[in-house]
Design a protein around this nucleic acid. Structure first.
Lengths: 103, 103
DNA sequence: TCCCATGCCTAGACTCTCTAGGTATGGGAA
DNA sequence: TTCCCATACCTAGAGAGTCTAGGCATGGGA
């Protein structure tokens, strides 16, 4: 996902806590079905973000007897989200500049 | 450069032919100094784009006795540029959507 | 009974970019 | 005069990041 996977996950969690599978659906919906993340990309990324202290998880029971791992942004994660969102804004502005405003 | 290196090079060449070293400067300027490409990234990418038929090169003599390899967009390259620019637009729109319009 | 959706996970492969080096010329500084 | 820097090109190897392809488990519908 072009190096913006962390930003997408953090930004998605900014709208409220969620478990991995739900995050994939949330990103699909909010992107207008343009971003279709794979589980094999999302779960390792979530583990990495948790190890970095950006998100925290707790286990929750599913109605059907299954288990879910629900993630939420930490304070550090909120700061990281703001930082990355700013970085993204700068980058996309720069790309528009190189492409000649037309975008 | 987050998977957009080809787009940046093609878009840059859209403004007129140039050699590698000049492309780096052009991208730096047009991005407001936000994008600082490395030679080690640019030259292999140019070779790849040429092998793919997106750009064509010719050797030119420098005033100082040096040699320059000047690249120009081919017709296929122009089409590829349009395709990738569209793709980029869709992607950045999608990211904005996930981040919640605020961007 | 079997398959599919939900839900989590990992190993390995793959792609892309960067680091760090190499070559060569000419001009300005020490 | 010597050395360094800017220009200009190049490559091998490492590293980061993501995807492919698999595995495991549950419950409901065909």
């Amino acid at each position: 996902m072009n190096g913006q996977l962390d930003l997408l996950l953090l930004g998605s969690l900014g709208a409220g806590e969620a478990h991995g599978y739900a995050l994939i659906a949330r990103i699909r919906e909010r992107s207008g079905a343009r971003l279709e993340l794979q589980e094999g990309s999302v779960y390792p990324a979530l583990h990495k973000l948790e190890a970095a202290g950006c998100i925290a998880s707790r286990w929750a029971d599913d109605a059907g007897g299954g288990r879910r791992r629900v993630y939420a942004l930490t304070a550090a994660g909120q700061a990281e989200l703001a930082r990355r969102a700013e970085e993204w804004k700068g980058f996309s502005t720069a790309v528009r500049g190189v492409l000649g405003e037309a975008s």
